[in-house]
Amino acid sequence: MPEMETANRHEIAKALDELATICDTGFAFALHIRFTRPNILYRTYPQAWIDRYSEKGMMIEDPVVLWGLRERGIVRWADLDDPNGILAEAAQYGLKNGLTCSVGPNSSRSISGFTRSSAPFTETEAQYLLGVTQHLHDLTENLSAL
């Protein structure tokens, strides 16, 4: 493994460890989405939710994913329309106070989601999470897996 890639992986691991302290109910990264498929997918949400989400093919109608593919920046889940009840169902699995960040060009978009059991993320925390998303997007540009 090249030295630069090893350094990037250590930096990525450090960032993910720090996020675990902020996002007690989980977070997810879909990095470098090309042709609707992420090059790297990393999720710490409860396995029961990941299984339900996958089994029901929720990604196609997920307002977080749809927003992230169309927009860049930050959005709170509470501000998204949820006509199919996906975010409401996620809340039943403990995924509350959600926030999503989206960075990168349309040809290589990265989308992240963050949740926690306490109060919604502050604006300062939201900007920090956007920065982490951009940093991981940059670090993983040439990686194939976490």
Rank of each mutant, 00 (worst) to 15 (best):
L41K: 12
Y128P: 00
Q127K: 05
A90N: 02
C101E: 02
F121I: 01
G85Q: 04
R76L: 00
L99E: 07
P46I: 11
L136W: 14
L146K: 07
A126S: 13
L143F: 05
N84M: 09
S144H: 11
C23M: 11
D81S: 08
E89D: 14
P83M: 02
D17G: 08
S54R: 14
Q127Y: 08
I50Q: 11
S102A: 15
A91V: 05
L143M: 14
E141V: 05
M58W: 12
A91S: 14
R43F: 04
M59P: 03
N39K: 10
A30I: 06
D79C: 00
Y53V: 07
L129A: 12
N142P: 00
L41M: 05
Q92W: 04
L80G: 01
N8M: 15
L130A: 06
E125F: 00
Y93Q: 03
D79R: 06
I86K: 00
F121W: 06
Y42V: 06
R116Y: 01
A126G: 12
E18I: 06
H32S: 02
I33E: 03
G131Y: 09
I50N: 12
A15V: 08
Q92V: 08
D24Y: 04
K56Q: 14
E71S: 12
L41D: 10
G94A: 05
N8W: 07
G131P: 04
S110P: 13
Q134W: 11
A119P: 03
G98K: 05
R43Y: 03
A28I: 11
E11R: 15
A13H: 09
I33G: 06
L139A: 04
G57L: 08
E71T: 10
D79V: 00
V65M: 14
A13W: 06
M4C: 08
S107H: 06
D17L: 15
I22M: 13
D17N: 09
L80V: 03
I40W: 01
Y128T: 00
M4H: 08
P2Y: 02
E61T: 01
G94K: 12
E11S: 14
F27L: 11
Q92P: 02
I86W: 02
Q127R: 13
G113L: 04
M4I: 12
L136Q: 05
F29M: 08
K14N: 11
P105H: 08
Y42L: 15
P63I: 03
R109T: 15
K56M: 10
E71K: 12
T25Q: 13
W77Q: 01
W77H: 11
A88N: 11
A28M: 10
N106G: 13
Y128N: 09
V132D: 06
G94D: 08
T140C: 15
V132C: 06
E5A: 13
C23K: 05
D82I: 00
L146Y: 06
T100L: 02
D62Q: 04
E3T: 10
D62E: 01
T140D: 12
E89C: 13
G98F: 11
C101G: 03
